[in-house]
Design a protein around this nucleic acid. Structure first.
Lengths: 74, 74
DNA sequence: CCACATTTGTCCGTATGTATC
DNA sequence: AGATACATACGGACAAATGTG
């Protein structure tokens, strides 16, 4: 057995936890993708996948030229 | 205004429709990623993103070495 | 057991488009 | 005009699992 999780999953889990436990509130801006890349020590791809996942979950929304923001809970 | 949709969205929509309207049934195997690439005339990336999305939606499941299969509806 | 082909999953680097400031 | 930032796409690479010989 293995406890391995891909980078994008760890990033998504970490950000999701920050959102659900209130460290990130609706309307808050997430770090930029470049910053997330540096924070997690990966390339752009895992960051993209993590944000893609959280978008699909309806937790965040990206706004071109502005940033990525936490959405209101449905 | 524009009706543009990215490739991965078109692929995901097409496959999702095939699943929900019964052309693809639970247990059925989807075309391989290589085949999907050729079918939709894209590179691997949009195909990956489409399957990633449908996986997140719980519609399909990938099995390494075997293929991608339609799941039972929950 | 080993070699090989197939297939899914993940990651890297790079480039382009679009929108904002 | 330039910098910043998100979104999408291309090409290439390697790991893991499966099946066949």
């Amino acid at each position: 057995m293995s406890t391995y999780k891909p980078d994008y999953q760890r990033i998504a889990d970490d950000l999701r936890e920050q959102i659900t436990d209130g460290r990130l509130s609706p309307g808050d801006k997430l770090p930029s993708k470049r910053e997330l890349r540096d924070i997690y020590g990966t390339s752009a791809q895992p960051v993209e996948a993590a944000l893609f996942l959280l978008r699909a979950e309806g937790l965040i929304e990206g706004r071109q030229g502005k940033g990525t923001f936490v959405l209101e809970r449905e």
